[in-house]
Simulated scan of single mutants.
Amino acid sequence: MAKPEPGSVTAAQNWPQALLLVGCGNMAGAMLGRWLEYGLPPERVTVVRPSGRPVADGVTVMTTLPDVIAPDTLVLLGHKPQQLPDIAPPLEARLGAGATIFSILAGVSTTQLAAVIPQAGAHVRAMPNMPVRSGHGVVSLFVDPSVPAHVRDVADLLCRPLGLVAWLEDEALFDAATALAGCGPAYVYRFIDALAKAGEAVGLSAEIAAHMALATVEGAALTAAVSKDAPGALADAVASKGGMTREGLDVLDRADGLAPLIEATLRAARDRGAELARLAAGPGKA
């Protein structure tokens, strides 16, 4: 289904009546920036951040939680996971009826959220990645099957302007999804940098190599996004037998090449998610 243009009436018609961001770091800020650009009325948004720094025109910024959080507010938890044990009690005490917790805290399960913020009507777990700011991100989502369907619908509509919405049926897979899509952009940036440095090593200037590496990855990603062929088939289509591309692919395809390296990378990120969950649970609660 085609997305409406940013700022259009269609884009703006399904926004929550009240959106409270508890924390507004890089990720939460990227999400909010996209939503505002896409048509979210800024007067519906309140951001709680200790610094009190402005966020955007029309958005209310507070240094502490409001005394009362209006009924049916969607509360986005955008602080550090380790801060949850300190933030949850005062948040729980202020929640109005029907409030939904929308958490982007790495490693924090819906069970943990429900245990520390039971007053909320529903708990949605989400993990976006940084390209959500341009609408080309990925947002992994999970809600318990017992949660009313309209909560899932609201979360789905809220995340569609951000990019691909990936619903997970098993929350146990959340750390794996986060390792792939949430952490993945950083790994792609490292690959771009490595490609540029390799180009420099074989004789190109640093400036030309950097520009070529970025443009090459961008073009390849755009091509893969619109192609009916799998990325592996696209790679084989570029690589003729005995040619330059095939010679390079043979290096990447070694038993100790790219695939096991990326797998080890994702496993390390996934396992860190489990560690973050234990930290967020607090001493003796993991």
Rank of each mutant, 00 (worst) to 15 (best):
A2K: 01
T10V: 13
T10M: 10
A11K: 01
A12F: 12
N14M: 06
N14E: 14
N14W: 15
W15A: 10
W15Y: 09
L20R: 01
L21H: 14
L21S: 09
C24F: 00
G25D: 07
N26M: 09
A30F: 01
M31D: 00
M31H: 03
L40F: 11
P42D: 07
R44S: 02
P50Q: 00
P50E: 00
R53N: 13
R53P: 04
P54D: 07
V55H: 05
T60S: 13
T60H: 09
M62S: 15
T63I: 03
T63E: 11
T64N: 04
P66Y: 03
P66F: 07
D67K: 08
T73V: 02
T73W: 12
H79I: 05
H79M: 14
K80G: 13
Q82T: 13
Q83R: 14
L84P: 05
L84C: 07
L84T: 09
P85K: 03
E92D: 15
E92Y: 01
R94I: 05
R94G: 07
G98Y: 10
A99Q: 08
T100E: 10
T100N: 00
T100L: 12
F102R: 07
A106R: 12
A106L: 05
A106G: 12
S109E: 06
T110E: 00
V116S: 04
I117M: 14
P118D: 04
P118Y: 00
A122S: 04
A122E: 02
V124G: 13
A126Q: 08
V138T: 14
D144L: 09
S146G: 11
V147T: 15
P148F: 05
A149S: 12
H150F: 01
V151S: 00
P161T: 03
L162H: 03
G163D: 03
W167F: 10
L173H: 07
L173N: 08
A177W: 06
T178K: 06
T178V: 11
A179C: 14
L180F: 11
L180R: 05
P185W: 09
Y187G: 09
V188I: 15
Y189T: 08
R190C: 13
F191N: 00
F191M: 10
I192L: 15
V202D: 07
L204I: 08
A206S: 13
H211I: 06
H211Y: 01
A213Q: 01
A213S: 03
L214D: 10
G219L: 12
A220P: 10
A224V: 11
V226C: 10
K228A: 10
K228S: 14
K228N: 12
A230N: 08
L234H: 04
A235W: 05
A235Y: 05
D236Y: 01
A237Y: 04
V238C: 12
V238R: 08
S240H: 06
G242W: 03
M244E: 02
T245G: 06
G248D: 00
G248Q: 01
G257R: 01
P260T: 06
P260G: 02
I262S: 07
L266T: 11
D271C: 09
R272I: 08
G273M: 02
E275T: 13
R278S: 07
L279I: 09
A280I: 08
P283S: 11
